[in-house]
Simulated scan of single mutants.
Amino acid sequence: MIRVGIIGLGAIGQRLIKDFNNHPEVNIVSICDQIEERIIETAKQLNDILTFTDYTKMLEDTELDLVYVAVPPKYHHQVVSDVMEKGLNVLCEKPLANSTEEAESLFLQAKNKGIINAMNFPLNYSSGSNTFAALINDGYIGKVRRLELKMRFPQWPRSWQQNEWVASREQGGYVLEVGVHFIQQIQKIFGPIHVLNRIIQFPEDPKACERAILAQLETEDGTPLLIDGLSHIAGEEEIAFTAYGSEGTLSLLNWSALEGGKIGEEIVSIEADATLGDTLIGQLVKAIKGEEANIIDFSQGYEAQVVLEQLRK
């Protein structure tokens, strides 16, 4: 059995607990959070679990094969670095760190340690996003003319994200929380991207995150990429990633739905190929067992962080 420890039991950390539990070769043996109420509630879901409020003590007192770090972004660098110093394999929440410099430090440390290092970018295991990538690679839209990422949030943070950091300029905002997923996907499918210019709007509160962004980027071959984000608006949440090409248009909507069409035809729904779906936990297990696996490592996390910080700053 692969022994897993979890550091950080907030809304994001809770999401993977069920996935860890559902894998027959994984056993969560220890959990850690500074808030004891979270520990108590999480422990109810698990059997024979060790609990800690100090992650350094957990690393000292528990035999582990993998540590999942799901603390707020500004703590990623210290916690992940401490995990790697123990020679432990690590899964880190996105973004990799809270600055380009911190992300580069973790990437280089992981490279030097030679351990398994992975990021939680779930789009890489979604049948919807993988079908999008497959259609692009198969030439569904022809030569790519333009990429667009549209993000609309009536409320930010959303109702399930009410904590002390998701709304902060320091380590929150939807460009960081949502945009980085698509930055990573764009780099994976279309190659490196570069920020040309951006307009970002903040509220009067100097500690509050952005409310609007308009950014112009491009791929290495000069294909334009537009990022258009707004929060605190009327209507429903909408996230749309669209590729326009010489032969058609293709969109990934609200994380999983697909629609597209050829030039001269209507835009219609497209069914995702279920065989292209996968699980992060399953791929991590393969990697730890020494098998070929599809994991997004810290080098890719660092590449996404470079673009992310150019947008945020």
Rank of each mutant, 00 (worst) to 15 (best):
residue 281 I to C: 13
residue 286 K to I: 02
residue 56 T to W: 07
residue 313 K to T: 14
residue 280 L to Q: 08
residue 191 G to M: 05
residue 306 V to R: 14
residue 204 E to D: 04
residue 83 V to P: 11
residue 40 I to E: 11
residue 184 Q to I: 08
residue 233 I to R: 01
residue 305 Q to T: 08
residue 138 D to T: 04
residue 36 E to I: 10
residue 175 V to S: 02
residue 96 L to S: 06
residue 234 A to N: 13
residue 302 Y to V: 05
residue 252 L to R: 02
residue 79 V to F: 04
residue 113 K to H: 08
residue 101 E to K: 12
residue 61 D to A: 02
residue 1 M to T: 08
residue 112 N to K: 13
residue 183 I to L: 15
residue 244 Y to R: 01
residue 223 T to E: 05
residue 208 A to Q: 12
residue 174 Y to G: 06
residue 120 N to D: 15
residue 135 L to Y: 03
residue 144 V to K: 11
residue 155 Q to N: 12
residue 250 L to D: 01
residue 45 Q to R: 15
residue 62 T to M: 04
residue 103 A to S: 15
residue 310 Q to R: 15
residue 68 Y to L: 07
residue 46 L to V: 08
residue 51 T to L: 00
residue 79 V to M: 08
residue 303 E to F: 06
residue 282 G to M: 03
residue 274 A to C: 11
residue 60 E to V: 12
residue 209 C to M: 08
residue 69 V to S: 10
residue 198 R to M: 12
residue 181 H to L: 13
residue 165 W to R: 06
residue 60 E to N: 14
residue 216 Q to C: 09
residue 203 P to M: 09
residue 174 Y to H: 12
residue 59 L to H: 11
residue 65 D to Q: 06
residue 23 H to M: 03
residue 285 V to E: 00
residue 125 Y to I: 01
residue 33 D to Q: 00
residue 93 E to T: 15
residue 50 L to D: 04
residue 106 L to Q: 05
residue 7 I to T: 13
residue 94 K to W: 07
residue 309 E to S: 11
residue 202 F to W: 15
residue 125 Y to H: 02
residue 93 E to L: 09
residue 294 N to I: 04
residue 243 A to H: 07
residue 96 L to V: 03
residue 192 P to R: 10
residue 234 A to P: 08
residue 246 S to I: 09
residue 269 S to F: 12
residue 176 L to W: 14
residue 48 D to H: 15
residue 185 Q to E: 10
residue 50 L to T: 04
residue 310 Q to E: 15
residue 55 Y to G: 07
residue 73 P to I: 09
residue 248 G to E: 00
residue 199 I to S: 12
residue 39 I to C: 06
residue 268 V to K: 13
residue 241 F to R: 02
residue 211 R to S: 05
residue 124 N to P: 04
residue 264 G to L: 12
residue 312 R to I: 11
residue 129 S to Y: 00
residue 90 V to T: 03
residue 297 D to I: 03
residue 75 Y to G: 03
residue 150 K to N: 04
residue 145 R to H: 15
residue 287 A to S: 05
residue 142 G to D: 09
residue 216 Q to P: 00
residue 299 S to W: 08
residue 191 G to S: 06
